[in-house]
Deep mutational scan, measured.
Amino acid sequence: MTFKAIINGKTLKGETTTEAVDAATAEKVFKQYFNDNGLDGEWTYDDATKTFTVTE
C-alpha cells in the first residue's frame, strides 16, 4: 500500500510517499525520515486517505 506524509515544518514543507504493508510500518519509516531531517511536531493520521500529517 502507498502511504503519504504531508510535512508542515518550519524549515521543510512538502509531501513524500512510502510503500508499506501497514500504517504502523509506514509511520516508522516517516518518523525516521523526519528525525533524520530534524523535524519534530504534532502527528495526525487519516486512515481513509492513508495520509500522515506532521505540523511543526
Rank of each mutant, 00 (worst) to 15 (best):
M1T: 13
M1P: 06
M1C: 12
M1F: 14
T2V: 13
T2H: 07
T2F: 11
T2N: 06
F3V: 01
F3M: 03
K4M: 07
K4A: 04
K4S: 05
A5G: 03
A5C: 15
A5D: 03
A5H: 02
A5E: 03
I6Q: 05
I6W: 04
I7C: 12
I7N: 02
I7T: 04
I7S: 04
N8T: 08
N8M: 13
G9H: 10
G9D: 03
K10L: 14
K10Q: 09
T11Q: 10
T11D: 08
T11H: 12
T11L: 11
L12I: 11
L12P: 05
K13V: 10
K13D: 05
K13T: 09
G14I: 15
G14K: 12
G14M: 15
E15G: 05
E15Q: 10
E15V: 13
E15M: 13
E15T: 11
T16M: 15
T16Q: 11
T17R: 06
T17D: 04
T17F: 13
T17K: 06
T17Y: 14
T18L: 12
T18I: 15
T18W: 12
T18N: 02
T18F: 15
T18V: 13
E19F: 15
E19G: 03
E19Y: 14
A20Y: 03
A20S: 05
A20M: 02
A20G: 03
A20I: 03
V21T: 11
V21M: 11
D22W: 00
A23G: 03
A23I: 07
A23R: 12
A23F: 10
A23H: 07
A23N: 03
A24Q: 10
A24T: 08
A24G: 06
A24M: 09
T25V: 06
T25S: 12
A26K: 01
A26W: 03
A26H: 01
A26S: 02
E27K: 11
E27G: 06
E27T: 04
K28S: 09
K28P: 01
K28C: 08
K28H: 08
V29S: 05
V29N: 07
V29H: 13
V29E: 05
F30Q: 00
F30S: 00
F30L: 07
K31E: 04
K31Y: 04
K31F: 04
Q32L: 08
Q32G: 05
Q32N: 07
Q32P: 01
F34G: 04
F34E: 00
F34H: 01
F34A: 14
F34T: 10
N35K: 15
N35R: 15
N35C: 13
N35T: 13
D36A: 13
D36G: 06
D36H: 08
D36R: 11
N37D: 05
N37T: 10
N37G: 06
N37V: 14
G38I: 08
G38A: 07
L39C: 08
L39A: 05
L39S: 04
L39Q: 05
L39H: 04
L39D: 03
L39I: 14
L39K: 05
D40I: 14
D40N: 12
D40R: 12
D40M: 13
D40P: 05
G41F: 15
G41L: 14
G41D: 03
G41M: 14
G41E: 03
G41A: 09
E42F: 12
E42P: 05
E42Y: 10
W43C: 02
W43Q: 01
T44N: 08
T44A: 10
T44D: 08
T44V: 10
T44F: 10
T44E: 10
Y45E: 00
Y45R: 00
Y45T: 01
Y45I: 01
Y45Q: 00
D46V: 03
D46M: 02
D46L: 03
D46Y: 03
D47F: 06
D47C: 06
D47V: 08
D47M: 05
D47S: 09
D47K: 07
D47T: 06
A48E: 11
A48N: 12
A48P: 05
A48T: 11
A48G: 08
A48S: 10
T49Q: 04
T49N: 07
T49H: 04
T49A: 06
T49P: 00
K50G: 04
K50C: 06
K50Y: 08
K50P: 00
T51E: 02
T51A: 03
F52E: 00
F52P: 00
F52D: 00
F52M: 01
T53R: 05
T53W: 12
T53Q: 05
T53I: 09
V54E: 01
V54L: 13
V54G: 02
V54Q: 03
V54P: 01
V54W: 15
T55K: 07
T55D: 05
T55P: 03
E56S: 08
E56Q: 12
E56T: 11
E56L: 15
E56Y: 12
